[in-house]
Design a protein around this nucleic acid. Structure first.
Length: 415
RNA sequence: GGAGGGAUCGCAUAGUGGUCUAGUGCGGGCGCCUGCUAAGCGCUUACCCUGGGUGACUGGGGUCGUGGGUUCAAAUCCCACUCCCUCCGCCA
């Protein structure tokens, strides 16, 4: 969420940001509401001051009681009006996206993202590389039909070495991030309360993409970013604690309403998938460099797996709602011959911190201020699984297990 | 799922309609005193919104788990919700 004061004082800048993002939200109504709200508050406070002063008198005369009745009526109707204004204002504010950093290229859609660099050699095969859905079925490690039988389209079952390979990847990633990159491992709930979804910017705008349990009003996390953001919701972090680095493995649940019909083949886009997520709470001045470090931590996974990848700088139209600046990591998948997004690393500035009310105290006697938060996948499992299967495939349909995974998998080759 | 108890400043607690402008103790901070790692004394101690002043500062309002309600007046009474505790039942 943006600071209403900031919007008030930098309306042009915010409007420009909305234009650059191709977001159709409007500030006009917000500014009108804000002005009304503040005018009414002033009147209300004066009435309350009168009531307070009167209530301090011990004895109440008939006259005072009558005057008090009148005050009460006025205060109540004013309070109701202000509540309404505030609710409207808040709802609109929650739908305004973050302002992109000036270094983010202005673009109209994802085709304006910029490839910053590419790492590794694209593998050369002396046979036609197969897509993972063919390899997965022939090796008996991915069962699409039974996934559909259990849960419908966009669900699949991993079997035997397929399940094991995924579990190996998860463990490998968490070990890497906790042992070498300074992250603390977190195992969070997969279902959270509504206010968590608001704090991490998933609600109200992206309701359609979330699973929701009606009976207990719990929301299924679409990413561990949600619980990790809310871990410190409504907290003031004491001096000397930041930066905080968290790594969490969770399943992720997405209805994929916005991507209906897209990527229905294989395991690229399911309703349920696994992900190792990296998350940082940092001091505002450091968030720029922390984003670069976050990206490096995620990249390290690709390098250790020896999988070719490239780094994209996302343009203004493609960075996520809460983001100031984002990089995507895409791995090469020779079977389906496309670059697969395996990670998106974002600096959210104080956007989520303001929504979730996460502050820190720079020094013991300083006023609390909002932290900056960053998130990035490290990495998303199904697509890494695809990349491993397709890049490490051999002519006979077997898959070589990447060196760093062998101790976890307990085999050199999956056949 | 059933029955009961509870949520007040960092911690512990007092407060059952106006004397609460929320007290006290501990802890924290600042200072004073003192010939000695102690003790004592004084002051101070959260957050949000909104105004004034260049500034050191300062005015107003709100917050006693959350949201409503009753009342001239609510920490206190009523309703709903959230969370915690105790007991019973069920349970991987």
């Amino acid at each position: 969420m943006l600071d209403i004061k900031f919007i008030r004082e930098n309306t042009e800048l915010v409007n420009q940001a909305l234009t650059n993002r191709h977001d159709d939200a409007s500030l006009e109504e917000i500014l009108t509401l804000d002005q009304q709200y503040r005018e009414r508050i002033l009147v209300l406070e004066e009435l309350r001051r009168e009531r307070k002063a009167a209530a301090r008198q011990k004895q109440a005369s008939e006259e005072m009681i009558n005057k008090g009745r009148e005050l009460r009526t006025n205060i109540q109707s004013l309070e109701e009006e202000i509540r309404g204004l505030n609710a409207q204002l808040n709802d609109l504010l929650l739908r305004i996206p973050n302002i992109p950093d000036p270094s983010v290229p202005v673009g109209k859609d994802e085709t304006d993202n910029v490839v910053l660099r590419t790492w590794g050699e694209l593998p050369a095969f002396d046979f036609k590389p197969a897509p993972h859905w063919e390899l997965g079925e022939s090796l008996g490690i991915i069962d699409f039909e039974r996934g559909v039988k259990l849960s419908g389209s966009r669900f699949y079952v991993l079997k035997g070495m397929g399940a094991r390979l995924q579990r190996a990847l998860i463990t490998f990633m968490i070990d890497l991030h906790t042992n070498e990159h300074g992250f603390e491992e977190i195992y969070p709930p997969y279902m959270v309360k509504q206010e968590c979804m608001v704090g991490s910017s998933n609600l109200p705008k992206f309701k359609d993409n979330l699973y929701h349990d009606e009976e207990d009003d719990l929301w299924f996390v679409p990413t561990a970013e949600v619980p990790l953001t809310n871990l410190h919701r409504d907290e003031i972090i004491p001096p000397g604690i930041l930066p905080i680095y968290y790594a969490a493995y969770t399943a992720c649940f997405r209805r994929e309403k916005m991507s209906a019909g897209k990527d229905t083949r294989g395991i690229k886009r399911g309703h349920q998938f696994d992900k190792v997520e990296l998350y940082k709470y940092v001091e505002p001045a450091t968030s720029g460099e922390e984003l670069e470090k976050l990206l490096a931590s995620a990249e390290d996974v690709c390098r250790k797996l020896k999988l070719p990848y490239r780094i994209l700088q996302l343009c203004t139209a493609d960075i996520s709602f809460a983001s100031v600046k984002s990089y995507d990591i895409e791995m090469w998948a020779p079977g389906c011959s496309e670059w697969l997004e395996v990670s998106s690393c974002s600096n959210c500035g104080d956007f989520q911190a303001r929504r979730a009310n996460i502050r820190y105290r720079p020094t013991p006697d300083a006023k609390p201020q909002f932290v900056h938060t960053l998130n990035g996948s490290g990495l998303a499992l199904p697509r890494v699984l695809i990349a491993v299967i397709e890049n490490y495939q051999q002519a006979d349909g077997s898959i070589i297990v990447p060196e760093v995974l062998r101790s976890y998998v307990g085999a050199d080759v999956i056949r």
